[in-house]
Simulated assay, not measured.
Amino acid sequence: MTTAPETGTDAGLAPELADDLAAAALTLARRFSTGATLWCVAPAWEPHAQHVAVEFVHPVVVGARALPAVALTDRDPVATARLSVRPGDVVLAVADAADPYVREIARRAPAWGATTIWIGHGARPPAGSADHVLWHDDPDPAQPATGGFVLLYHLLWELTHVCFEHPGLLTTEGCTDEVCVTCSDEGRVVEVTDPGTGSTALVRTPDGEQEVVVDLVGRVRRDDLLLVHAGAALRVLSAEGTR
């Protein structure tokens, strides 16, 4: 395993960051084991996205698995991610908390059925912005070039392969109850693919396209995010919250 450099008087990663990193690696290993692709975005620091993808596709350790990973470096990574990401995939972003593209991808990921990992520094994104947040709290503008980010995704790569060495970690027990909180029809985020002209709209969900009733929210637009419960749209979610 890679040894983290000493920072100040402390060696290695902070305990909280180490725990977050281990949890992200386990999730990533589980997604890869079911056929996921890792989509990497870093709108302001594209070399990081390319570096992450190369780490997973071209492992430097003999015998390590090559894993599907792609760097998204288009001018509009949101539109490219919308076309590329499939249910079960993972989107890994390297960006600060204010990056508008990453914020938009992260809030749409639940509708796409994708897991999100966000690596960054400085001010943290709001709680719940991503499934896994791997963060350096140092606000120094030079942080992206110091190697801290590289250390994080190198460790993420190595820990993911450690998980592969323990197959029992890669499976999760399914729900056996007839009704449970996880499997019930809770409010969920979906993305409008066809607003239609009547009382229903076609939306994208992790389970595929579905038709939902939009009478309660009125006219919707393509790419709107809706909060849906029991087949009916309850709210239209704007970038700031609810419209």
Rank of each mutant, 00 (worst) to 15 (best):
P5S: 14
E6C: 10
T9D: 09
D10K: 07
E16W: 00
D20L: 01
D20R: 14
L21G: 03
A24V: 10
A25W: 10
L26I: 10
T27N: 12
A29F: 02
A29Y: 08
R30S: 01
R30V: 01
G35K: 02
A44C: 02
W45Q: 14
E46H: 10
V52M: 14
A53W: 07
E55L: 15
V57S: 09
V61G: 03
V61T: 15
V62N: 03
V62S: 11
G63W: 07
A66I: 06
L67W: 04
P68Q: 12
L72C: 13
D74P: 00
A81C: 15
R82I: 10
S84D: 01
S84L: 13
V85N: 01
P87H: 08
L92E: 02
D96F: 06
D96A: 09
A97Q: 11
E104V: 03
E104N: 04
R107S: 08
R107W: 06
R108K: 12
A109Y: 05
A109I: 04
A111E: 00
W112Y: 02
T115V: 15
G122Q: 12
R124L: 09
P125Y: 06
A127Y: 02
A127M: 02
G128H: 05
G128L: 09
A130P: 08
L134W: 01
H136W: 09
H136S: 05
D137S: 15
P139L: 09
P139N: 08
A142W: 07
P144D: 11
G147P: 12
V150C: 00
L152E: 04
L152N: 04
Y153V: 07
H154K: 09
L155Q: 10
L156F: 05
L156W: 03
L159G: 00
L159Y: 06
H161K: 01
C163G: 01
F164W: 07
G168A: 05
L169D: 13
L170K: 07
E173V: 14
G174E: 15
C175A: 06
V179F: 07
C183Q: 11
D185C: 09
G187E: 09
V190L: 10
E191C: 12
G196W: 01
S199R: 13
T200I: 06
L202Y: 00
L202M: 13
L202K: 12
V203K: 01
E209I: 03
E211I: 06
V212T: 11
D215P: 00
D215H: 05
L216W: 04
V217D: 05
R222Y: 03
D224H: 03
L225M: 08
L226W: 08
L226P: 11
A230L: 14
G231Y: 10
G231P: 10
G231D: 07
A232N: 07
R235G: 04
A239D: 14
A239T: 13
R243A: 14
